[in-house]
């Protein structure tokens, strides 16, 4: 205390004995402060900093430039050098990172689907890169493993969300590489008109068609009604069901018509009904109402690059499995 009291004070005295020293700042602190000022001057010179009317200083050319390769909208590669900016830096970062992946993406782009599947090295890349792409873009609906969501019974459970299972071997829109690629690129919107293709089926006709549909997969049904339903199903002027579900009821993949013969009931809860009347009932409701607000798969052609879509196609077809 003796040492401190020898220092100068500001001269003020508060509350009888409260004084304030005027000690100088510690030297190390002061030098630190001067250094930050010097740093800021260097920073002003190196990086875009000072406004100049309608423009701004852009750093020292050559000292802090960014080099990158740009791709023009016509697909030309152009080498460029510019002043530092986060956006130019991102171009350079992307060039560097994509350079490493490019070799593999080029191989994927240049190889046929079948040969990719046979090549273990390429498949390793597809599995790794596909998992990331799938998680970022597809998993919100189809889940990480591709299991999707069951609709349950859309008639009674309006909050049930449907997304097809991609890990099984049933493909509503076709399971070949080409069909999967088309689905990813352009998206899909399912739709079933109410009361048949022409929308003109009567209640009785609908009951007959429901019985025929049940007969296709060996569910309990009324054989006489099914026979009448058979005709309506196949007559383009009446039911017109064959347009999408096919003459054999196995579905037309290009139309997204479901297979009615495989006992997989994705939209109508037939298997959940105990008796024939119940099964006819839910089908009757479905055919009467049609499906016009079914989940649409978005189109990814505008969001993803062609080689990414190709890689995802192989990922869905082979890694998740069940491709045709």
């Amino acid at each position: 205390m003796a040492q401190q009291s020898s220092n100068q004070t500001t001269g003020h005295v508060w509350d009888d004995d409260l004084k304030e020293y005027t000690n100088p700042l510690p030297r190390w602190w002061l030098w630190g402060f001067y250094l930050t000022i010097i740093f800021s001057v260097v920073y002003w010179l190196m990086y875009p900093a000072w406004p100049l009317g309608s423009s701004y200083t852009k750093g020292v050319p050559g000292v802090n430039s960014v080099k990158y390769v740009a791709t023009t909208k016509d697909g030309q590669q152009v080498e460029k050098t510019t002043h530092w900016s986060t956006r130019a830096q991102l171009m350079a970062d992307t060039n560097a990172a994509e350079g490493k992946q490019k070799e593999w993406f080029d191989k994927v782009a240049a190889t046929s689907y079948d040969d990719i599947a046979k090549n273990p090295d390429l498949m390793q890349f597809v599995n790794a890169a596909g998992k990331t792409l799938f998680s970022d873009n597809c998993a919100a609906c189809h889940q990480v493993g591709g299991a999707g969501h069951e609709a349950g019974n859309p008639q009674t459970n309006q909050s049930g969300f449907f997304a097809p299972n991609l890990a099984d071997d049933y493909w509503q829109w076709g399971g070949t590489y080409e069909e999967i690629s088309t689905t990813i690129t352009g998206g899909r919107t399912g739709f079933m008109p109410a009361k048949g293709l022409a929308g003109s089926l009567t209640d009785e006709q609908i009951t007959n068609v429901a019985n025929y549909v049940l007969s296709l997969s060996g569910e309990p049904h009324n054989a006489d009604a099914a026979k009448l339903g058979d005709e309506i199903f196949h007559n383009p002027g009446e039911g017109g069901c064959i347009t999408c579900h096919g003459a054999d009821g196995k579905g037309v993949p290009s139309m997204g018509g479901l297979n009615l013969t495989d006992k997989i009931w994705q939209w109508v809860d037939v298997s959940g009904q105990a008796d024939e009347a119940g099964k006819v009932g839910v089908l009757h409701t479905a055919i009467t109402g049609g499906f016009n607000h079914v989940e649409a798969m978005p189109k990814w052609g505008t969001r993803l690059k062609p080689e990414q879509i190709k890689l995802l196609t192989v990922y869905v077809h082979d890694t998740l499995g069940g491709g045709q």
Binding site: N137, A140, H149, F161, H293, E295, P298, R303
Partner: peptide, 21 residues
């Protein structure tokens, strides 16, 4: 925008855990 279907958004907004565990 465009990443998910309208239907996904409706179900997700009503109860997010229905679609995203």
């Amino acid at each position: 925008g465009g990443k998910y279907s309208n239907d996904w958004h409706v179900k997700h907004l009503k109860d997010p855990r229905k679609v995203v565990e």
